[in-house]
Computed example of a mutant assay.
Amino acid sequence: MRNPDWNLIRTFLTVAECGSLLAAASRLRLTQPAIGRHINQLEADLELSLFVRGRSGMKLTEAGLSLAEDATAMRGEFDRLLLKAAGRGDRVSGTVRITASRVVSIYILPPILARLKAAEPEIEVELVPDNAVANLLARDADIAVRMVRPTQNDLIAQKIADIPMGTFAHRSYLETRGTPQTIDDLSEHLVIGYDREDRMLAAMHQMGLDADRSFFAFRTDDEVAAWELVKAGAGIGFAQLHIGTRTADIVRILPDLAIPTLPLWLAAHQELNTSRRIRRAMDFLAGELRKLPLST
């Protein structure tokens, strides 16, 4: 048995995850014959049969299943080594332009970006608060924090989390108007909702509440303005759980209400593969966003 090349092990893991040579070739940006040669070489080096080839794709053998777990652990250690090496290598410099919704830009990103700047003082950050989906392919931004899954093929994207939502009101509002105990009680209260957007009404219908636009005493499509109305004691509103629970004098109500979650995605142009500053900023954002207390 010969010691295999790491690139062969990486190919082995990718084929195991993708289930076919063609899909693995697409992910690794190699040709299908090259992927096949890698697998054949690795099997020869290890003197083991790792896959059963069939019309339905590549299925791991018992030996392949056993090795895949250890190989995954090896890849994790290798990725950590690369990240540590990048942090100790030449300093990263240049501008990184980040776009996110106004809510994320105002209530979530500022402390994260402050820590990014402290860790990488030569990175210049441009923050673009915008609810519109930025065109990363046209380079309107380098990195986007999105609440929808990116669909362009030339983007690199990763899902960070599903963000839980909650129902909130200011303490002064509840002292004056009382606290609703059921979703039906909301009809007796001042509720803050969207103006032209229909996502909130759709969610309410999904939760079993028959409501139309007139259900909302205050209407705005600006989520920051809506949250400020809640903070001012104007009425009951909805917000990301980790924002609402950390705001002074704001009380969470109807905790058992099954509000649909919001997906949180990070996306960047493919230049992420060649730009150290964008890669560093992307990895930093991903790590920090994953630390958000999403379950409290």
Rank of each mutant, 00 (worst) to 15 (best):
V104N: 02
S49F: 02
Q152S: 15
G166I: 03
D142I: 05
T14G: 01
A16K: 04
L30M: 14
T99Y: 02
T220Q: 10
G233L: 06
F216G: 05
W265I: 07
N7Q: 15
Q240L: 11
G233C: 06
N273S: 12
K291Q: 14
T14I: 10
R29C: 03
Y173Q: 00
L50I: 05
G76R: 13
E43M: 05
T167E: 01
L48E: 15
L136T: 06
L48N: 03
R146Q: 14
A281C: 12
M165H: 10
A239C: 11
R177F: 12
L201S: 08
F168C: 03
L285P: 00
V104F: 15
P293Q: 06
L82A: 01
N7G: 13
T167N: 04
A248S: 11
A73K: 13
I35E: 04
F12V: 07
T167P: 03
D198A: 12
Y194T: 14
V191L: 06
G166N: 07
L264T: 04
L109E: 06
R290Y: 01
L294G: 03
L285I: 09
F78S: 10
T11I: 11
R149A: 15
A281Q: 07
A73T: 11
E188V: 00
A161D: 12
D283V: 11
A157E: 05
A25Y: 04
L186R: 06
P111V: 11
F215M: 06
G87C: 00
S101P: 01
A63T: 07
L113H: 07
N7T: 14
E197P: 01
D198G: 07
E223A: 14
G89L: 00
L82T: 00
D222L: 05
E77T: 00
A157Y: 07
I143A: 01
P4N: 05
G76I: 00
F238A: 01
Q41E: 13
G76H: 11
A132T: 13
L127K: 02
V103P: 00
A225W: 02
R2W: 05
A217G: 15
S295T: 14
M282H: 13
L67T: 03
S66E: 14
E271L: 09
A114Q: 15
E120T: 02
F238D: 02
T247I: 00
I143Q: 01
